[in-house]
Amino acid sequence: MTTPLTLENIQQAPKALLHDHLDGGLRPATVVELADQFGYDGLPTTDVTELATFFRTAAHSGSLVRYLEPFAHTVGVMQTAEALHRVALECVEDLAADSVVYAEVRFAPELHIDGGMSLDAVVEAVLAGFADGEKAAAAEGKTITVRCLVTAMRHAARSREIAELAIRFRDVGVVGFDIAGAEAGYPPTRHLDAFEYMRNNNARFTIHAGEAFGLPSIQEAIAFCGADRLGHGVRIVDDIEVHSDDDATLGRLASILRDKRIPLELCPSSNVQTGAVASIAEHPFALLARLRFRVTVNTDNRLMSDTTMSQEMLRLVEAFGYGWSDLERFTINAMKSSFIPFRERLTLIDEVIKPRFAVLIG
């Protein structure tokens, strides 16, 4: 007998998460406590409930630039090794509580050196937090693997340095590289040196593209930079013509994206908040999934979007009528697209994801 698709039941399903920002997923209470502990006095309020509301409403702006503004407060309290370790550990605990079995969590080390830490020390603190979070989750009976993506800010000039950081830590928890930040005016081709460095070292990377900016951003990320995945990539829908009979014609960029199986790290709630799409019901996720693009479900920023993987999946279920087999497909899509070795991906798919979904599907 098939298990009903409720939030509580979806919370029991195994999940794979590829696009989650460490500084966008703090617990509101932790922000308040760290601000008090380390003397950060910039918070708009120290009331935990009011602060949670502030992050949610400030982020729901209809603009990527305005959406990013509240991050000044989370980054502001993450300037010591102790704070970074705590945030990373709690991140793993929260994901494990939502039955996430694999996650790649990203953050920009260059944003966390105002307190005098080196880039290496920043990464070491986060990786230690992830490792301790995995142990804490295991003690609660939850198995989760968390790996790190180091991100360079696209408006800055440290991308090569951050790419080198990714390679230095590649065997101890960092599995890839990313660029993020406001897209308009900061094309990915400004960072070709970093991407070339990653390719020369046989390393993987994803690029935020096609969220606030359109097809040119995706074109550059794929054709010039050689991205393995696209962060968001939602505007690829602009290269797809849907006909009255529900058939569709793909443009050359959309075709190559699908033909090469380049994964899309789609973040439904966040895409609505930033104005990339008007609503969940109008999100091109359903069209892209129907056309067999490699779509994945992601949270982006759990604090800002007041969301979890289970809530993102439920919103898709409610909007598009998906069943357990669809959620399984999206989860396997994500696991196939992860940056860990093939055998590790296959083990999680065959020994964790498929068996647990089989129970839910009935």
Rank of each mutant, 00 (worst) to 15 (best):
G62E: 11
A58C: 09
F38R: 05
P44E: 11
D36A: 14
G76H: 06
F54D: 03
T53F: 07
G25W: 04
L68D: 11
A72M: 13
T45A: 04
R66G: 04
V65G: 11
G62C: 06
L34R: 00
G76Q: 03
A52Q: 11
V75C: 14
D47Y: 05
T46Y: 14
M78Y: 10
V75M: 13
L64V: 11
L64W: 09
L34N: 01
L26V: 06
T53L: 12
D41E: 15
G25S: 15
T57S: 14
S63V: 10
G42R: 06
G25Q: 12
E50M: 00
A59Y: 07
T49Y: 03
T74A: 08
G76A: 10
T53W: 11
F54N: 01
T45E: 02
T45D: 02
A35Y: 02
A72R: 14
A52E: 12
P44N: 08
L68V: 12
P70T: 08
A52L: 09
E33L: 04
R56W: 13
P28Y: 01
T53K: 10
F55M: 09
Y40N: 06
L26I: 06
H73W: 07
T49W: 02
E50P: 01
A58M: 10
S61G: 08
T53C: 08
R56V: 12
T74N: 09
T53R: 11
V48W: 00
L64I: 08
H60F: 15
T57Q: 14
